[in-house]
Nucleic acid binder design. Sequence first.
DNA 1: TTGGAATGTCAACAAGACTGACATAAATTG
DNA 2: CAATTTATGTCAGTCTTGTTGACATTCCAA
Lengths: 169, 169
Amino acid sequence: MAEGQGTSTVGGQALLYLTDEQLRQGIEAMFFAYRGFTADPDRILEGMSYGRAHHRAIHFIHCAPGTTVNNLLAILGVTKQSLNRVLRTLIEDGLVESHVGRSDKRERHLTLTEAGRALEQQLSDAQRARMRDAYRKAGPEAVAGFKTVLEAMMDEDMRRAYHALREGR
Amino acid sequence: MAEGQGTSTVGGQALLYLTDEQLRQGIEAMFFAYRGFTADPDRILEGMSYGRAHHRAIHFIHCAPGTTVNNLLAILGVTKQSLNRVLRTLIEDGLVESHVGRSDKRERHLTLTEAGRALEQQLSDAQRARMRDAYRKAGPEAVAGFKTVLEAMMDEDMRRAYHALREGR
DNA sequence: TTGGAATGTCAACAAGACTGACATAAATTG
DNA sequence: CAATTTATGTCAGTCTTGTTGACATTCCAA
């Protein structure tokens, strides 16, 4: 049990006394942890004229190869104009390929090229390394709790997107 | 124990078999959860010509009233010029007050005005409500694990800042 | 007392988000 | 078949928030 976190048991169910101070602590932990979470890929990307936006696109194209622009838009939660700028540079630079859809020719299906996969690997290696270290330090029960809380924190539609990605694999 | 998370016990210590896929899952959970985490304050701020940067400044000035610009800079991890723009508008709009330091006149000490405290309250109410719901859904053990992993994910200097805030209260 | 370090401000610029308008091509519907 | 809707791409302009460079003020130490 975490220190300073009041609990009691009513009808066999543990309850939490959540003070504002405890919630604030969680909010700040989230803020600082997210900075750490993005720090390594950011460092790699800086100087190669890419940013976090490119990283996100590359990540999700890797996860769902052949995904459409519209699909990616929904996952990333940005406008098509914004995504398009990023995709254009990635395609120009030969990291992403865009193929006209077979059945629906309006759609463009996006995949990583060999070079794209190499960069994806480099970025996700760095991010996974930090994640792995954190998981190791914290231990398996903490990791399970971590994922449970994160999922509860998502909006409904993001939770759907999150699970959809998982099932698609 | 979370599903699909292999564990074994060696010398009394639980070990994790962390596949790339499991780590990726954590990475995506972090991405989607952070979106949810910032969604409510973002909604409140949109239309009042403030953004996330203003929220962060207000949050940490509230936590550490009388803090200096330099101090805030270290916590937020941005350049002083970037912070200054945000502070200037907050001061112009009467949400933040800046007082020249007594002992060191180079320093400016920052505090929230009444109006600033009101906005802070509104923003953090929204964010805490989401946090509280997530904590309730997940349960006390999950919350403990959540905080443990987040802390392990921070950079060393952010962890220091995080603990310093806690002690200062 | 003088030069450097610390602190904060102003100006200009870049990345990446946004909106709105519009073009094109393909699919769908009446 | 004609009209509409859908998926995508593009241009122009704006906003937020990050950056660097230049500079003023204040403090401190040699």
